[in-house]
Design a protein around this nucleic acid. Sequence first.
DNA 1: GCTTGAACCTCTAGCTGCTAGAGGATGTAT
DNA 2: ATACATCCTCTAGCAGCTAGAGGTTCAAGC
Lengths: 142, 142
Amino acid sequence: MLTIGTLSKKTGTKVQTIRYYEQIGLMPEPGRTEGGQRRYDNAQLDRLSFIRHSRQLGFSLDAIRELLDLSDHPNRSCHEADAIARRQLKQVDQRMARLKALRTELKRMVHECSGGRTGDCKVLEVLRDHSECLTEHEEIGA
Amino acid sequence: MLTIGTLSKKTGTKVQTIRYYEQIGLMPEPGRTEGGQRRYDNAQLDRLSFIRHSRQLGFSLDAIRELLDLSDHPNRSCHEADAIARRQLKQVDQRMARLKALRTELKRMVHECSGGRTGDCKVLEVLRDHSECLTEHEEIGA
DNA sequence: GCTTGAACCTCTAGCTGCTAGAGGATGTAT
DNA sequence: ATACATCCTCTAGCAGCTAGAGGTTCAAGC
């Protein structure tokens, strides 16, 4: 039986985050001691590791909820899991493409900075005038 | 003189967002009609465009605050603006590197999916067991 | 001048995915 | 018995918006 602190260390998840996952129903309610402290078993350790790893791969908590559900039913078709992963891959591809465009723009800005007064600063000038941009980058939150 | 709605259309910023920027002090308090409606001039249009464009390039609102401040003082050295842009570029580079690692992993997951039962699903298996990963990807929020 | 209706106003609450802190109870080692 | 690390719940906060309720104002058409 693991305390929440031990689980925290083993998975690299903050204690507060574990409680948060329980609150939103991603982690099941664990057993408690007489005094009311949470105690976890290995199944729960596995589940949290799964969540953690999925987060590291960028899956949203909603997607993880679906993936966990699929994982709990080994006889269903894995078609859905595959679809979720593909969706995630697509998102990553899109984000990378956007970042690439931003990078180009940023590089150009920095490259052209002559180190003089802010009045002549290329960095600020580019920010002032979108028309100077070589690439389109309409989306925010890349 | 522009209404908030016109400003919104011209900059592609939602009306609520413009009011939010005013609330946090990123946009100045505009003039008002007798009835209390906001009216903007071209200086404010420029300022919002600057903010918008900076957001598109991924700058945080705090960074933008600094950049705006620098932009308001044309005689200062542009060293700081350059530093902010370089910092941003570095962040973009880091995010891209992380995304690249994630992409590799996701691609592998999806590629190995055989389309059978979830019990044998490679996607879920990889999520279950981090040790199967070829790359490290410790950071979240890539 | 009057009516209509789109656009404006303020205020509050919500989103994702946590994180931090207050104020107090529990568990374990000595 | 005592110390003190860890646990508990609860509330509020972070970025950066977004949405909705409930009410007012503006401008155009008649």
